[in-house]
Nucleic acid binder design. Structure first.
Lengths: 261, 261
DNA sequence: CGTGAACTTGAGATTTCTCAAGCGGGGTGG
DNA sequence: CCACCCCGCTTGAGAAATCTCAAGTTCACG
């Protein structure tokens, strides 16, 4: 009740947070385990963090540029993306996120310099910063995992920079599909050769720095070459080797292996 | 002697590390203070980290993609840049760094996915990871400052992404100059309206995702409009308001204000 | 059955690139 | 001390990638 009431006040008059017993945050603990070794006790503590839940329909903003949030938002289900949109409408999408990820961890130490928006309907757990702070002090492994996750985010940004600066439209699109597919697989969200990726071609073009028209034509090429199928918010990889080659994709920048220490 | 000998072995047969008494690392402590509140004791501990020093001539690599370093490299003097270069020569520069910064902090938790190269002759202090790790455990403020610095790095990458995806060549160049100038001023490296920025036009184009030819022409425009002078490795801002407007530069993404907590 | 969002297609306009060549200054070997 | 050379800068001109504008199509949904 305590956190729920607080969130209700702080966040929005329309928010109807529901306190629940931390079951959901197991997802966060599992996700963090991918980034650094956690003890059973670390995971238990993460799972037991106080949290209030809120649903966001697709297209709704979860955090807005300029906010100085007092909670971390953990994606329990659904997908979201970060972006910055300039006054005249130009938009750059910076990253895509799936369940288990904290979509505004920067907000713990910085004010938000970008907006996070729901791509599909999302369940989001709000974890008060104070509670997280307390946990981090007692559980340095968790802090280290979060830091490492931030560093990997940075590595992904660098890879996107390389793409936008030095790769053709076709390679960029193929590369993005490879990345999304790989990360979704890591998160256990790939079935057979397909995964949910509910973006429009406009989203794609804004993520890649292209116009919609050009994105559309290149997409047709990729389909025509039998590399992918992409319809109805679902991505199917029909020829992984070919797609990887087209995108010059080398997953090492994702640092999927175990933590260095 | 201990660290010196170790570094000598680990690093390179041509390295001639010299142990010195931590005076230099004051620079690091000062730099970290920009990212998070440190106590006098925190700063003292950072300044007292064991370190071996090595000089790198301009153009020499300081850490190489694929390395799994056992030390952090702190830039004591000089400037460096991170980049990734593809087999066929395409290169993307990811960031520029000045004195006081750790140029391979990722290396503490990840293997290097990019190379760091000296832009001008550099003095680099090598701090063993084990020593830093020990310090971080005892000084959570320092860990928090480093984490926050990583997050700000990420914010800068996002801003570059926005530029490469959605800004014209002219705005991109102007924006980069604004950013460099602002960060150099924060580091106390601006005199009057000028600062050292020893990059060639090739460096600029690789940082911005442009061809050298086009970079050259746009640079002439900026000069022609009286916004900047850029020669001999030195950048002079002649019309800050104009440059800022041309680059759509808003420094909030640099998070120069105090830490949120 | 009407509507709007997302997707497609066509075609001309721009930005930016590539290739090619000339210039200029600093550094090096003779 | 001079000549030469290399790197970085500059310029010209045609080529390519990508963009913008404009309109038509499809499909899910009310």
């Amino acid at each position: 009740m305590k956190w729920g009431a607080r969130l209700n006040l702080v966040y929005s008059s329309t928010a109807r947070p529901v306190v629940f017993e931390g079951r959901m945050l197991i997802r966060l603990a599992e996700n963090l385990s991918l980034y650094g070794a956690l003890t059973e006790e670390d995971r238990r503590a993460v799972g037991a963090l106080p949290a209030a839940m809120r649903r966001f329909p697709a297209g709704e903003d979860i955090v807005i540029e300029g906010d100085a949030p007092a909670q971390c938002r953990v994606l329990i289900s659904g997908q979201a993306f970060r972006h910055r949109t300039l006054p005249d409408g130009r938009r750059q999408i910076m990253s895509f996120h799936a369940q288990g990820e904290i979509c505004d961890i920067e907000g713990l130490l910085l004010s938000m310099d970008h907006t996070v928006t729901a791509l599909s309907p999302c369940e989001v757990a709000f974890v008060p910063h104070v509670a997280l702070e307390t946990l981090l002090e007692a559980h340095p492994n968790v802090m280290r995992a979060l830091w490492r996750a931030s560093l990997i985010d940075g590595a992904i940004f660098r890879e996107w920079m390389l793409g936008m600066g030095r790769r053709t439209a076709k390679a960029r699109i193929a590369h993005l599909f490879c990345e999304v597919f790989t990360r979704m697989r890591m998160a256990g969200l790939v079935e057979k050769n397909r995964c949910r990726f509910p973006v429009t071609q406009t989203h794609l073009s804004d993520a890649l720095g292209l116009s919609v028209v050009h994105t559309n034509r290149v997409l047709q090429e990729l389909r025509g070459e039998g590399l992918i199928a992409f319809r109805g918010g679902e991505l199917a990889v029909l020829n992984w080797a070919g797609l990887q080659a087209a995108g010059e994709f080398d997953p090492s920048y994702l640092h999927l292996g175990a933590s260095r220490r």
